[in-house]
Each structure stands twice: as C-alpha cells, then as structure tokens.
C-alpha cells in the first residue's frame, strides 16, 4: 500500500467511526434535542472525513465535486438542526430532567406575565 492509500484508509475509517458514534448516540440519548446533536453533528464530521478520504484517491477534478458536497453539508446541517430543535422545544418534546438550566423557558414565562 502506498502512503496515499494509508491516508485514505485512515480518513475513511475515522469518518465511519464518527458516523457510528452518531448512530449510537441517536439510540442511547433520551430526548429530541440531545438526539439531534448525535444525529446531525458527528455525522457531519464523519461525512467530511469520508469525503476527504475519497478525495485523496481521486483525480482533482472529481474531488472538486466532493468539496461541494462537504460545503453544502456544512452550510445546511446546522440550519436543519436549529429548525428541528426549535420545533421540538415548542412542541414540548424536551426531557426537562436533562436540563440543568433553561433560560429560554424563564424568558418565555416572563413574556407571558
């Protein structure tokens, strides 16, 4: 195996590991907000690593397309998780026992009075 193969293998395996972490968190965590963290974030990192690992083995002009996939993942994933998170919070799908402090609910309550 050449150096390039090793780099590629390392990136692909670590990317896959991050995806596994995400899946594991998704199964284990108690509520929507924490599951969102597990479902969206380690997976983003995993995808970036896998794309990088693939790009190492490709010709540059195919790799450019992968860069685009990575860019859009980075731009869209946080927006999605924010919208889902807010919807979950608003509809009460939050396990309050996991929250040490909730300054938003304090604020919303103050707003209603």
């Amino acid at each position: 195996m050449s150096v390039r193969d090793w780099i590629s293998a390392g990136l692909l395996v670590s990317g896959a590991l991050f995806c596994v972490i995400g899946a594991w968190g998704m199964v284990r965590l108690p509520d929507t907000l924490s599951r969102l963290q597990a479902a969206t974030k380690p997976q983003t990192l995993g995808l970036l690593l896998i794309l990088a690992g693939t790009a190492v083995r490709l010709e540059p002009h195919y790799a450019a397309g992968l860069a685009l996939a990575g860019l859009f993942q980075v731009i869209t994933a946080p927006v999605l998780s924010q919208l889902m998170g807010r919807a979950a919070y608003r509809t009460g799908c939050v396990d309050r026992s996991t929250l040490v402090v909730d300054e938003l609910s304090q604020r919303l309550r103050a707003g209603r009075q």
């Binding site: 963290q37 983003t44 946080p78 807010r86 919070y89």
Partner: peptide, 15 residues
Amino acid sequence: AANVVSLAPGKFVLQ
C-alpha cells in the same frame, strides 16, 4: 456565527 456555533456537536442555537 449561529451556523458555525451550531456546527459543533453538543451545541446549537435553539432560538
């Protein structure tokens, strides 16, 4: 900035 903060695992801008 909200996007960047929300990118990392364990944190996101809820509102």
